[in-house]
Design a protein around this nucleic acid. Structure first.
Lengths: 217, 217
DNA sequence: TCAAAAGTGTTAGGCTTACACCCATGC
DNA sequence: GCATGGGTGTAAGCCTAACACTTTTGA
């Protein structure tokens, strides 16, 4: 049996920084689209699971680790890659903004965060992939605890609210927001307080089941 | 550039028949898993889009046409196919139960509908794919007009309710159900009546935008 | 006239939304 | 003592869920 295609994974890595939703892009060091910004990604190896490939590529190209990863959608239009038939399984990933040690590797001569509302021109069909990932993340915010994957292990409720506001793009009422989030029943107080600046310290919370994304309601 | 995998599509075709959610399976005519039930599907051709491939395979293997089709998820575990590295892009499809002219082609020596709650042993990882499709369809029922893709162009509200009850597995209150469905604002009366049997005829409705699946709320 | 499915409103309770002031701290 | 963000409750309106009888038809 002869193989009929190259299969790759591409990853849309999100973070929320300074109240804005950002995507990680790398600048391509090789043809095609040399010098153009693109999603991190690469070809699937023999005996490598798709999710493992996405995880490996993202770690290799950017130096980040420990992110939440979920399959998004597969893109396989015949002409999407000028090199031939390349079918890509797109993933999206989330990481807290604290963990950002970005370092481009050999496949990329630069790596940087871009606000989703202000992206440069992208290689291949990567603009479409990013649009699809943004849509999915926004939708999932409404019915799951996925937003907590953008936060460190301990966080204040205000930090949660900032994440939600950055992703939805609209402000929330503080009292109602807290009732909503605590009403999930997925958080517990750590007992510790966050002190940062000239104001009352905030209670810190954590997920009762860290790393688990729960469907709400 | 050398291809690294075979890419296929597999399709979970649903219908609702006699108040029960059914999946179409074909019995494999060739190795591996010869004689075992499996999802219809096959390899992607050069220059063929993934969705086109799914549509073609389903039409070829079963003779059905005119179904709603949506990408589900991609399955690519290294050992999922004994022939080698085969990555499959799974789709799911919906068809009204009236349009059922099933005919097995050369790849399959039989094709038949099975209730999702009572499936035979399936080839490859197809049981997992079906489970994933059922989950997706159930979820999507709650926030979209996808159920109407299981109905003919004109339908009664009772027929809609039967579809919902078959998929969710639980009965609905008739008055509340009608308020809900008409509240979508996606239906219009055709002006015609359905007469079938010794009882009051039912008004027929149609989608204002046929073939379009709308996200609700 | 009987059997079978179509069609139709109201009420109670729960959930959602809007809204403003005091608290604890660092400087 | 003042500036800054943390923390808290209530009331109105809206949505959801429960519930039963009349209508139209074919046999």
């Amino acid at each position: 049996m002869t193989a009929n295609a190259q299969v790759s994974t591409d990853i849309v890595l999100f973070t929320v920084q300074t109240d804005s939703m950002k995507v990680l892009l790398v600048r391509r060091a090789a043809k095609p689209f040399k010098g153009v910004w693109a999603l991190p990604g690469g070809f699937v190896r023999q005996d490598e699971d798709l999710a493992d490939c996405a995880r490996r590529e993202l770690e290799e190209e950017t130096g980040v680790a420990g992110f939440y990863l979920e399959q998004l959608q597969t893109f396989g239009a015949p002409e999407r890659d000028p090199r031939g038939r390349v079918i890509t399984v797109a993933y999206y990933a989330l990481i807290p903004s604290g963990d950002l040690v970005i370092q481009a590797d050999s496949d990329a001569d630069a790596a940087a965060w871009f606000p989703v509302g202000d992206l440069p021109e992208l290689a291949f069909d990567h603009a479409e992939i990013v649009a699809s990932a943004v849509k999915r993340l926004r939708a999932k915010l409404g019915y799951s605890t996925i937003a907590f994957q953008l936060l460190d292990e301990q966080f204040t409720l205000s930090a949660v609210q900032q994440i939600y506001e950055a992703i939805t793009g609209s402000p929330a009422d503080k009292r109602n927001f807290r009732k909503l989030i605590l009403g999930f029943g997925e958080l517990e107080e750590t007992g510790e307080l966050s002190r940062d600046g000239a104001h009352r310290p905030a209670k810190l919370y954590r997920l009762i089941e860290p790393d688990k994304v729960t469907i709400i309601k």
